[in-house]
Structures are given as structure tokens and as C-alpha cells.
Nucleic acid binder design. Structure first.
Lengths: 265, 265
DNA sequence: CGTTGACTTGATAGCAGTCAAGTCAAGTGG
DNA sequence: CCACTTGACTTGACTGCTATCAAGTCAACG
């Protein structure tokens, strides 16, 4: 189980080096930065640099570094200087915003192959936190910009990722603004399932690495309502819950109908 | 008054030409496309191409066209091929998504200097509709991509706009997921006011080109709740409503406190 | 075997939605 | 000029969905 990773020694006070950029260490104090680079990257077609010209790939390799974090580590905070984008190699990450009184809104979950941290200049608009032990590929934004002089395809691909994220936000805003609790939970589960399928994960049982509180803060409900709704779906035979963190979608069409509000009743 | 623009003749069945791209006419059947180009553009520092090298600007001019629409015209629909991005010269535009049963979520308002329609490939994720008579600068996305070979600053600037939009979405998701009705309305009014200031519009009275129903569908409430809340703000002296479509923000700090949930009571 | 934390279930309350009617300004036509 | 229409906004009464508060279940762990 991935708890084991949490036992690896931390490099809290090690000096920065060319391979381990100082700002990574300054910001993410508990990060373990590995010298070995993209060579062992197993993202395949999910990788940001998949399909780039060899020269472009090696340019990216020179500025990239791989970082490991324990569960619950904070990668960066809202207001931090937005210095890098991240590509997820393994594990799950959540990003969120807080209100002064502690209300929290999770604005995204990120899994293997996903990228987050887009921030051209200025500071991050949100905090990023590891849900499970994670491994991410860190790409300094400034270096990627420099690359664009010789390799415009790099910028183009970042834009593709950002466009996809924008489309996702449009859907999520619809969910938060206009969907009922049942519709929100159904939409959320189908979206997780769809993303698992796209990245080639076994579709069943679907892993829910985040807790009920995270789900609630993502879809704008409370823990209790999420729990009640999932229980109701189970009672109605739409899903099964072998464990609280694994679901089987039994009747995808029916769940889809709930999700877009066309379910009868 | 800008109603006058609505009387200009339409060019419904005119043949396409190099200056008036065929796809503009096919999609936006009621559009009036003007041959005169960026020469008369008065966006100044708000313009997408402001500050680009003269050669880059003239490349953009060659592929750009200016389009006029009446209020309530649809520029493109959810599912249409995403062929172009738009920069607003004048007027107000809303973009929205619909659910099968008619529920609507407005995901953005766009004013002078704003850009919308980002969609690298695939189709638009939302419908765009003119609120008032509008004039927009249409930039075919494919042509902008071609330009990036010689002028990477074009892509970079698109990325800046997209990054800003992403940050905006994070805030809007927080509003929809976790804010109360009062907080939502306060946040909305302050955001409109802030955007007016940034584009150099007179800050007071603040124009509300959209109706109550549009506001409600943007911040996830009903018309009645929006109306009641604005009335309450007026009663409490936070704002004044000289007409239903113009507001004066009387106590900005107090409204700000309501907006981020720090207001007492 | 007790502790802990996450999840679930139950009872009640409240905020915003729904339904309905009223106000108001701008147009329209006699 | 004035009665009538229209559409947008406002106000009021009531309902209901989801939040809140509280307690119970359960598995993991030491």
C-alpha cells in the first residue's frame, strides 16, 4: 500500500543544487526531490512531452525535476509566486480556496497525467495539497516560456491543457449553480469514472482517493448530504460501495440520466 | 442610444469573400461584417494586439474581421465548431450552458476589452449571446496558431488571457459552492465594478447591462432572491439603485465585507 | 479492548426556491 | 392625451431541499 512511501526520509535542510532547484525546496519544505529525471517517466501518451521532437524533449528534461510528497503535504499556497506547473505521475492532489471563516471550496482534483498550477505571472490563486502520497513532474514556467522561441509546440500544448480545463470549469459551474444534490453526486461519480477510463485505469471498482469531506467541498454540499445521496444511490441499485473508498457503477445510463436531470421522478 | 445600430441593414444572403470569411456568415446569420479593419480600433491598451511588433500586428489585421450584432443575437452555440476567439469592442455578451429541462447557467459576462471563445480544437462548450448591440473583433484561432511559428508572443498573450480566466473561474466556483445569497450578490457587484474600473469606465453609476434573470443565472440564484437582496442592500445603504440597471456602490468596504463573509451579523 | 477518525443515520431548522400578485416605466394605438 | 398592453422588476406568503446538530456504526490500529 502507498502508505509505505511516507516512511522515506525527508531532505529538510539539504542545500539546493542545479538538479534540485532551490525554490522547490524553499516552498515545499517536506518534498523529496529526486535526481533521476524523465528517463523513468511512465506516463506514456499521458505525458506532457509525449510526441515532441527529441531536441524539445531533452530541453524539457534539463529544466524538469521529479518531486515526491507525503499525503497531506502542501505543494504551494494561495498567494505563493506561481513559478511552476506540475504534471502528476502518481497519486491524487486537490486544489482549494479558503474563506476567512474557514469555508473551503475545492476547485479541482488531479490524477496521473493531469497538469495543474497554470499561472503565467503573479501568484497562485489556490492552494495545492496531496491527498495520497504523490509523485509529480515539476516544470518551471519561465523555462517553458523560454523554450517557446524555438519550440512553439510547447506553448501550444499548454494551451490545449488550459482549454480543456476551461471547458471543465464551465461544466463544474453549471453543476454548482444549477444542479440538485443527487445530480451533483451523480455527475461527480461519472466524471471520476470517465477520467479513470481516459487514463487507462481499470474502470471498476472506481477508486475514491478523497474523503467525503473533500467530495462535499468540491461539489458544494455537506458531508452528510454526500453520504446520504451515495447511500440512496446504493439502495436504488445505481452504484455499489464495496468499501467507502471504492464504488462500482452498476447502472451507468441511469446515473447519467440523474446527472443531466432527465431521470424520471 | 445604441438601439439605433439595430436598424442597419443585414447582409443575410450575401456571398462570402476573402474579407468576410464564409464561416462567420454561415454561423452568425444576422451578423453585419465590416470591411474596415483594426485601423479604427479604439481599444488602446485593452486590445489583444497592443504592443506587438508592427509586423505581427499587420499579420493579425489580415486575418481579423469586425462583426456587429443586435441585442439577443446568438454568436455561436454550444457544440458549434470552435473556430475563432473574439475580442469585445463594445457592448455586453453573455455565455451560458443549458440543461435538457431548460435550467440555464451563465458562465461569463464579457465587456469592452474582454476576450472569449477560447477553444483550440473540438467545439465550443457553451453558447454566446449578445446582451446589448455589440461590436466584436473576430480572430480565427487557426490563423493565430499559424502566426505562433514566427511570433510566439501571440500565443503567450492568449495564454495570459486564459490564465486570467482560469483564476476568475476559481473565484466563481468558490462563490457558487460556498457563498450565501448576500455574499454572491455583493461579490458580483464588486466584480462588475472592478472590471469597469480596470477598463477605464466611469465607476459611478455602474451600468448593469444584463437583467435580473441573467444575474440570477450567473450567480446560481433566482430572480426573486437577486431582487430581494439588492433591495436589502439599498435599504441598508450599501448601494443605491437610481434605475434598475444602474447602481451606485455607496459603502464599498461594507460591501466587500459582505462579499468575503466577514461582515458582522 | 479501548481509542480514533471516517462515515452514516436521524431529527430539526433555516435559507433560498416556488408560486402568486403587485408596481412601474415604456410603448402603442385610438 | 389617455387607456391599454407589455415586460421587467419587486414584494409577499409559503414550501422544501439541504444544512445543522447530534448520535450511532464501523474498521483500523496500538
Amino acid at each position: 500500500m502507498n502508505r509505505a512511501a511516507a516512511t522515506i526520509a525527508r531532505r529538510d535542510a539539504s542545500p539546493a543544487s542545479a538538479d534540485w532547484p532551490g525554490d522547490v525546496l524553499a516552498r515545499a519544505d517536506k518534498a523529496r526531490v529526486r535526481t533521476r529525471s524523465c528517463a523513468q517517466c511512465d506516463l506514456g501518451s499521458l505525458a506532457f512531452c509525449d510526441g515532441f521532437a527529441p531536441r524539445t524533449v531533452s530541453s524539457i528534461r534539463r529544466v524538469q525535476c521529479t518531486v515526491q510528497h507525503d499525503a497531506h503535504d502542501t505543494l504551494f499556497r494561495e498567494g505563493d509566486e506561481g513559478a511552476a506547473v506540475y504534471s502528476v505521475l502518481s497519486g491524487a492532489i486537490k486544489v482549494y480556496k479558503l474563506m476567512p471563516d474557514g469555508r473551503r471550496q475545492i476547485t479541482g482534483f488531479f490524477f496521473r497525467g493531469d497538469m495543474f498550477g497554470f499561472c503565467l505571472d503573479g501568484s497562485y490563486a489556490y492552494t495545492a495539497e496531496a491527498i495520497t502520497p504523490i509523485e509529480v513532474c515539476r516544470l518551471p514556467m519561465q523555462r517553458l516560456n523560454d523554450l517557446s522561441e524555438t519550440a512553439p509546440e510547447v506553448q501550444h500544448r499548454i494551451m490545449l491543457r488550459m482549454t480543456a480545463k476551461l471547458a471543465q470549469f464551465h461544466n463544474h459551474v453549471l453543476l454548482l449553480g444549477r444542479k440538485t444534490a443527487r445530480e451533483r453526486v451523480a455527475t461527480f461519480l461519472l466524471s471520476l469514472s470517465d477520467r479513470a477510463r481516459r487514463r487507462g485505469d481499470p474502470p471498476s471498482p472506481l477508486a475514491l482517493p478523497m474523503g467525503r469531506a473533500d467530495i462535499a467541498d468540491y461539489i458544494g454540499l455537506t458531508v452528510e448530504t454526500v453520504s446520504r445521496t451515495m447511500t440512496a444511490f446504493k439502495r436504488d441499485g445505481l452504484i455499489d460501495l464495496p468499501t467507502p473508498n471504492h464504488i462500482d457503477i452498476c447502472r451507468a445510463e441511469a446515473l447519467r440520466a440523474v446527472s443531466d436531470g432527465t431521470a424520471r421522478g
